[in-house]
Write a protein that binds this DNA or RNA. Structure first.
Lengths: 205, 205
DNA sequence: ACAGGAGTCAAACGATCGTTTGAGCATACG
DNA sequence: CGTATGCTCAAACGATCGTTTGACTCCTGT
């Protein structure tokens, strides 16, 4: 089922993720990509069929993991009386922070931010078809916790929160932390900032 | 000084703005661009020198206008005792909304969102060198109105607000309005949403 | 009237792109 | 042993890219 961790497919996916994040989907060529991965140029078309399908696989690999953890965290708290808005936001944000722990996982957030900016219909449809249910479920829980908001008002605020979080998380590699705090506590602080900001933006009267 | 409104230079700039917004800086070729503008392919290199310099001119033309209006609106209210956080945010957001009134001015916000996602050092330096003072002046006014925030805390929140606004304004062309509200009032409502959201995110305890 | 700059044009330049091809290699299976 | 099968490889394909060239037109200033 899964490929070996250092197989040709996985090496391509890792290099693709990094180069797509740094130079964009058009900007990163298959020749740069395969050279960085140490594989032959034709390997991309052999294993993935085309560059577009490779791009989709880059998303699928990370989003399956990311959204799986998000749903697990949400299901652990959804519908309960003592659940707070901050809890739900943490269920959404923490998995993304965990992702940026390992290797170039943080670069994937840049890839995701690019996808939003692209406004490419094919890519947006792919993301909506495969992972739209996650956003829908989170929105439903927001609606339960914010009953004073109209549906239209809520959609507006969720959209703005999404924009802020995508923007912020795509820059995680860049934010300089003071030398006296560890990488771990820095991320904890970042998450705390994000959660409090988003909670304020969602719930203001 | 300024070119005639329908000169070759202006026709190129308008088509460039639209195609850069729709297909990205790499995705839009000079051949598509000059064909849409109804001018010869070589005209771009003749009038602008290169594609990169054309890109810079697309930014310069709109940002000079946009930031000029922002600074004018800010200077009208900065430092006064009765000025509220919402006033400052309106000084930042309203000019962007006005821009999207005329022609394809709204597409420029998409171009700007792309530039943020690109993380291109050359482009970021260009934007920072030419228009960084605007963000600095707005941040200074935020600092005056939010004295309870540390400098680090304020930078965090301003960054998140910037992300939310860029994301939201880049999608203005897409947001569907109900058929019973005019385009004008729809924009007013959008601005009101943005301002209240940003104010809540900036000023929460 | 005429020299000269500004602008436009078709054509070509070299480079790079995604994709395809067919031969070569290895391992697994009859 | 023989032969499929999965995979890798160098090489080439046609297309498209940004840029340059040189001839041609038009207008302006002396």
């Amino acid at each position: 089922m899964h490929s070996a961790p250092h197989s040709t497919k996985e090496r391509i996916l890792s290099s693709a993720e990094e180069l797509f994040a740094r130079h964009g989907f058009d900007g990163a060529s298959l020749r740069q990509l395969t050279a960085a991965a140490g594989v032959n140029l034709a390997a991309v078309n052999y294993h993935f069929g085309s560059k577009d399908r490779l791009i989709e696989e880059v998303f699928r690999r990370r989003l399956d993991e990311l959204n799986g953890r998000r749903m697990a965290a949400l299901n652990r708290i959804a519908g309960q009386e003592e659940t707070t808005l901050e809890d739900v936001l943490a269920a959404f944000i923490k998995p993304a922070l965990d992702l940026s722990h390992d290797g170039n996982g943080s670069l994937f957030m840049r890839v995701l931010a690019r996808a939003f900016a692209e406004h490419d219909d094919t890519l947006r449809k792919f993301l909506s078809d495969n992972y739209g249910h996650v956003m829908r479920q989170f929105t439903a829980e927001f609606a339960r916790l914010l009953p004073h908001l109209s549906k239209e008002e809520l959609y507006w605020r969720v959209d703005l929160v999404t924009g802020a979080l995508t923007h912020a998380m795509s820059g995680f590699g860049m934010i300089q932390r003071k030398s006296d705090v560890t990488e771990h506590t820095h991320r904890e602080q970042a998450a705390a900032h994000l959660i409090r900001f988003a909670a304020a933006g969602l719930s203001h009267p």
